[in-house]
């Protein structure tokens, strides 16, 4: 069989590439428990010192609190805007729709560095620099397209007759929105809340430019990288990793559970 060696080769390359993708994540988690001051091999013994160090570090704790606060507000706003935009795309046809969708969907394609610079300069005109409000404004721009994509995919599964049936049974468009469209999109809305929270929680470029002295957690990490590199970053990284993965899992769980339930 001539297929066997090509299969092995393909499988081998696949494993190597996945090792490359997962190596940094593994390194972060492993070395966060390493006692040595400089993370390397051989292993220097198990320790929770780095976790202790960050938990007592006031700047880290404040950054963490700010990041949570920003992520919570951003997820609600971005999901609302994403839902509204997805619904407009699903329901209406109008001139200029392409431009409208471009305005709503393009932000993630612009490098965050450039978004950061643009927002820094513009926000300085309207006194948003140095405030968490500014960070939130920027993060919502970046996150709402993700929410829109998730909710739009869910709407694509909604029979176009469903809204018609609701109107036909006496529901106005507003009450149809509340009693039909929202319940139908509920799993996607929860996924969108989780995903946008995760994206906002991780984002550091816009936050770095806009937040001023109100450092969020990733901005604190950036500052730590610029200063004295310390294995404390591993401990923060592990905690952040666990939180974001939990959010992603939650999103995944909410979508698949609904899908299973609807299977015939």
């Amino acid at each position: 069989m001539r297929g066997v060696w090509t299969d092995r080769l393909l499988g081998g390359v696949t494993i190597v590439v996945f090792l490359f993708i997962l190596a940094p994540v593994a390194s972060i988690i492993v070395f966060s428990f390493n006692a040595d001051r400089y993370p390397s091999l051989p292993w220097g013994g198990f320790s929770l010192d780095w976790y202790r160090a960050i938990l007592t570090d006031e700047t880290v704790r404040r950054g963490f609190g700010r990041s949570l606060q920003v992520a919570a507000i951003v997820s609600v706003l971005a999901t609302f805007i994403g839902f509204a935009t997805a619904y407009v795309d699903y329901r209406f046809r109008f001139t200029g729709k392409l431009a409208f969708l471009a305005l709503a969907a393009l932000p993630p394609t612009v490098p965050v560095l450039i978004l950061g610079l643009a927002m820094l300069s513009f926000f300085s005109l309207i006194d948003l620099v140095g405030t968490l409000t500014g960070v939130i404004a920027g993060h919502v721009v970046l996150c709402s397209p993700f929410a829109m994509a998730l909710i739009r995919m869910r709407l694509a599964e909604m029979s176009p007759d469903l809204e018609g049936a609701a109107w036909n049974l006496g529901a106005t468009r507003w009450s149809c929105m509340r009693s039909v469209v929202l319940p139908f999109c509920k799993p996607a809305i929860f996924s969108a809340l989780a995903i946008t929270a995760a994206v906002s929680f991780d984002e550091f470029m816009i936050a770095w430019f806009v937040s001023g002295l109100n450092e969020t957690l990733p901005v604190r990490i950036l500052a730590m990288l610029q200063g004295q590199v310390s294995p404390r970053i591993n401990a923060i990284g592990t905690i952040v990793f666990v939180i974001t993965i939990a959010l992603v899992f939650l999103a995944q769980f909410l979508t698949t559970r609904k899908a299973d339930k609807e299977a015939p």
């Binding site: 007759d161 469903l162 018609g164 049936a165 139908f184 609807e262």
Partner: peptide
Amino acid sequence: MVWQSYALFPF
């Protein structure tokens, strides 16, 4: 109306 697709609310 009774719809061809039934258009029942799945939730």
